[in-house]
Nucleic acid binder design. Structure first.
Lengths: 104, 104
DNA sequence: TTATTATATGAACATATGCTCATATATGTT
DNA sequence: AACATATATGAGCATATGTTCATATAATAA
């Protein structure tokens, strides 16, 4: 019988990058609040800003961040852009974490 | 019948803090690698450093971070400290995310 | 076209983050 | 006690991050 050393299987670079990026998106209170709100209902930018008491600019910047990671998407209605969530996996991670935070 | 406005239920400050802290812990490649390794097997500090090609100091700093959040724990054996994971919820989040990253 | 409304963007700034170096501390050994 | 080994810690530094301000862009209305 050969040695059973069971060498540790490293995480590959790409997986590590995707995973860290995903969690980074969820690591900021403002982005969490935006995602949580969009999880409840589709919203346009100014609705988000008002509901969460944030500057329009702040919301817009964070939406760009979330859109780059394909965590949110939008549809246009005239000059208004309605944003909604676009990654159910990530929303599941968020909701699980919220649930744990409340019950631990 | 009264209006059914369904006002949005805000996340409370404490939940928001815990959730963002948790995801912040998982947002850094080095911490992800350490947690993933500890998920496979208990390790002492120098084993982690060698296995992941990190400076002892870097590992020690990150372990302190993870320990403060109670994501890892340790037992002492002489001058050697053996670290292991201490939050199954968070490890579940990590493994789910790795799985999604690989299959999407 | 001009004006209006909604959203996006870039620059500037303050703060946070992660790494490395040097050194401290703690336990065990001789 | 003196020494060796394992780990922890603080300072310094470079980079990343999040917000705000001012302004640009885009669609629509008059």
């Amino acid at each position: 019988m050969t040695d059973q050393q069971n060498k540790y299987e490293h995480l590959d670079e790409e997986t590590l990058f995707i995973v860290s990026q995903t969690f980074k998106a969820l690591s900021d209170p403002t982005r969490i609040r935006i995602l949580h709100l969009l999880g409840e209902k589709e919203c346009n930018v100014s609705e988000i800003a008002e509901e969460l008491s944030l500057m329009q600019s702040t919301v817009s910047h964070q939406l760009r961040f979330l859109k780059n990671l394909r965590l949110v998407k939008f549809r246009r209605a005239g000059t208004t852009l309605f944003y909604s969530v676009d990654d159910e996996h990530v929303m599941t991670l968020l909701h699980q974490s919220i649930h744990h935070a409340r019950h631990d």
